[in-house]
Structures are given as structure tokens and as C-alpha cells.
Amino acid sequence: MLGLEFPVINEVVRWVDLFPTFNKIALIACEATLIGTVVFLVAGAADWRVAPTGIRNLAEIVVEFIEGLILETIGPNGLKWTPHMLSFFIFIYLCNVPGIIPVVYMPATARMAIPLFLAIIVWVIYNAVGIKHQKAGYFTHMLWPPGVPVFMKPLVGLIEFVSNILLRPFALAIRLFANMLAGHMLLVTFAILTEELVQGDSVLLKPLGILPFFMLLFITAFEVLVGFLQAYIFTILACVFIGASMASHEEHAEAH
């Protein structure tokens, strides 16, 4: 009988410090900053007069992708947020990708620190933008959307406060963190299952190791998509929140 010993999550996400306070997550975060910076420096140094190729082409595609995202969600006024949204997208993507890179095999966003910090940054930005554009009206508009009956205002205000102020950043963080952690756990699960079947004592079960191995390959390929998708979702939600904060009460009413 196959005795499968699956490690607890704490063990899976544990990693020895390279030196005190600096572990794999810190390494991946620094590496993401370094790679993103180098890519954009190289892209910026390329000759702009000729048709873009290679790294410059890649960087311009990413810039245009983010600009398109901002135009769809915030509008032309939001283009000033392009560098910030680019930072979110590239940093998250480069933190997600190591989850499928051999030896590293750990998405930095599968730990709560990065998603939580980024979500708090987004929270600060969209609240600051709301206050800047709508002054004190931002909170009244947020807490009491147009058309709410007077007797419902306390309840709706409480719900909107909890939803917009308290839960939204956590939802943003947990969406990214949980998706990446789940993908990482799936990879670990099928890797352990493959290893146990192939290296197990039972000769009959050894050939069955090919099944979880194929699942491991499939999920690895799927994680490439998930890594991009989660970066995209985080960025587009950040844009949507900022766009909603910039829109005035009247614009909200017109939209409805």
C-alpha cells in the first residue's frame, strides 16, 4: 500500500534564510526589481528611430498593453498612472514567474507579504485620488450611492464602508496570494505524488507515476498563464478602483 506523506503548508513555503532576514521571497522581490529595471534600461537605450525589436519591442508591447488597460478602465485622464500600473504589473508578474522556474520553484506572491503590501499601496492611492478629486464628497458618495432610501442609509453605509474601506484591499491581496499559493500547492502535490509512485516499493504502481507527471507538466504550463492572469487582474482592479475614485457623483449617476 502506498504511504503518502504530504508536508504541511508551513513546510512547503519554508525556506532557509540566505543570510539573516533575507530569504527566497526577498531574493525574488529584489530579482524582480533588478530584471524589470534592466529590461527597461536596455529597452530605453535601444535606438528609437528604427522599428523596435527584441527587448525594446517587448517593453513597448507591455507599455501599450497597460496604456490600453488604463484607457479602458480610467480613460485618457488616467494615463498619468501608467508608470505606477506598469510597476504593479511587471513586479507581480516577475514575482509570479519563479513559481515555475526550476531550482527556484516559488512564486513570491504565494506568501502574503507582497500581495498585502501592494494591496495597501493601491488602497492608499485610490482613497487619496478620491479625496483629491471629490474632497469630502468622496466618502459620502462611496458610503451612500445615489438612489438609496433614507431609512436604508445606515445599513448601506455600514456595508459600503466595510466593503470599500476594509475588505477591498484584503480581497485584492488574498485573490493574488491564494491563487498563487494554490498553484504552488498543486505543483508540490503532483511532484510528490510522482516521486512517491516512481520511487515506491510497488513495481505495479511505478508506471502509474506517468499520470501525475503529465499533470505536473500541464499545471506548470497552466501556471504560466495564471502568473500573467493574476498580474493582469491585480492591475486592472487597481485601475478600476482608481477610475471609480476619480469619477464624480454625477458621473456615477450618468453611468447608471
Binding site: N23, A26, T33, I90
Partner: peptide
């Protein structure tokens, strides 16, 4: 420690990007 390193790395990247 992860929060500090990640925040530092992201802030540096965001400032450079901006």
C-alpha cells in the same frame, strides 16, 4: 522581513519606473 524587503524592492522599482 519579507514585507520589508518586498516593500523596499517595489518602492525602488516604482520610483525608477516613474
Amino acid at each position: 522581513k519579507e514585507l520589508a524587503w518586498s516593500a523596499g524592492a517595489f518602492i525602488v522599482f516604482a520610483v525608477l519606473m516613474r
